[in-house]
């Protein structure tokens, strides 16, 4: 198999944390602006302009923050699993740095999805917590995040921690569909009865366009956050190199 030359060049450049640090710097303000604008538009539209749901009334407006955070929680774990594969197969240092930077961000989005889900559950289901299939899978996802973060914190040497976390992330990634299907199946066995959020009649555009906007906004902010955190990890890990020391000297003289 032959890859196009620019792709191969990009792949080789990704091996250099310094290249990453310098290339991503100009992207950041754009991503941040884009994220804030999209999310702001989505939230305003969702909160003020979209019609109320005929069943749930206004509490359905929580969807515009709940669904994006749940999507991000899962995407972030996929990102970490892929970084794990890249790290173990190609030993790319940058993959480990992304893995370290993304874990707390993913965990925070998972917790946010759980919290907003619980608040939404109160007016909709009449209870803060129900062992619904998606709630349960999300809770288990949070445990997987906490496990990776705990392992990284416990292992002192960054190299050992990175590769160990990579193995764990891959094992988790393989397990996520299995966990999801088993939980789904378990709860259909116990017929989740009265609570049903899944039966959405097709949403009118005035409801789903703001959702799309806010999902995209969340993505932009997430990417901004991961890039920015990864840049800090790059600085910390490469602190013995000349370019980081020059960068620090320049920053220090600015302050």
């Amino acid at each position: 198999m032959k890859f196009p030359a620019p792709l191969v060049r990009l792949w080789h450049r990704l091996g250099s944390p310094r290249w990453f640090f310098e290339t991503t710097a100009p992207w950041l303000p754009w991503l941040l602006g884009l994220g804030v604008a999209l999310l702001g538009a989505g939230a305003f539209w969702g909160l003020a302009l979209a019609p109320a749901d005929y069943l749930q009334g206004n509490s359905f407006r929580i969807i515009y923050v709940h669904v994006p955070s749940a999507i991000l929680a899962q995407s972030c774990y996929m990102l970490m699993g892929s970084c794990g594969v890249v790290l173990l197969v190609w030993r790319m240092k940058l993959a480990d740095m992304v893995l370290e930077a993304a874990a707390p961000i993913g965990a925070s989005f998972t917790a946010l999805a759980l919290a907003t889900g619980a608040v939404w559950g109160k007016p909709t289901w009449g209870t803060w917590w129900a062992w619904d299939a998606r709630v349960t899978s999300m809770l288990i996802l949070l445990f997987l995040y906490l496990g990776i973060m705990g392992l990284r914190q416990a292992l002192q040497r960054p190299e050992a921690a990175g590769r160990a976390c990579a193995i764990l992330a891959i094992v988790g990634l393989v397990n996520i569909p299995i966990i999801k299907y088993s939980v789904d199946w378990w709860l259909t066995l116990h017929q989740p009865s009265t609570f049903k959020l899944t039966e959405k009649p097709a949403m009118p555009p005035s409801m789903w366009i703001p959702l799309l906007l806010s999902v995209l906004g969340f993505y932009a902010l997430f990417i901004w956050s991961v890039l920015q955190s990864t840049r800090v990890v790059v600085l910390e890990r490469e602190r013995r190199t000349q370019w980081v020391q020059n960068f620090v000297a320049a920053e220090g003289s600015k302050a």
Binding site: F143, L146, G147, G172, N175, I179, S182, V183
Partner: peptide, 16 residues
């Protein structure tokens, strides 16, 4: 930490 790492992975076995 070991408990945190492996118990979530045990869940499908428990369910089945």
């Amino acid at each position: 930490l070991l408990a945190l790492l492996v118990l979530p992975l045990f869940i499908p076995v428990l369910i089945l």
